[in-house]
Amino acid sequence: MSLYFLCLILFCIGLYCVLRKRNIIKIIVGVGIIEYAVNLLLILIGYRQNGRAPISANDQEILNMVDPLPQAMVLTTIVIGLAVMVILVALALRIYEKHGTFDITKIRRLKG
């Protein structure tokens, strides 16, 4: 329970960074922190006490594997997170090219 709560505190720090900062790069950093927190929460839910990694061995019977399903799904999530991050950086660079700043309050000339 305390672990889940620490994980959600990490999520809140990322959310604070996204909501509060005015620099686009800082907002991207906040999105990255949120992604870490969510991935870690999913893996924490699938952990088994004194479990073993979900890799079967030849000469022994392993009965206490951790849950492999969240791990497989989070593997997908990490890669998709990379794709999201790349698109965000491309958008930030484009905005910098057009407006010459990373400050979101200075971006006013939206038309044309």
Partner: peptide, 8 residues
């Protein structure tokens, strides 16, 4: 690594 997810 500690949570036994080496692939991740």
């Amino acid at each position: 690594l500690i949570l036994k997810a080496p692939n991740l």
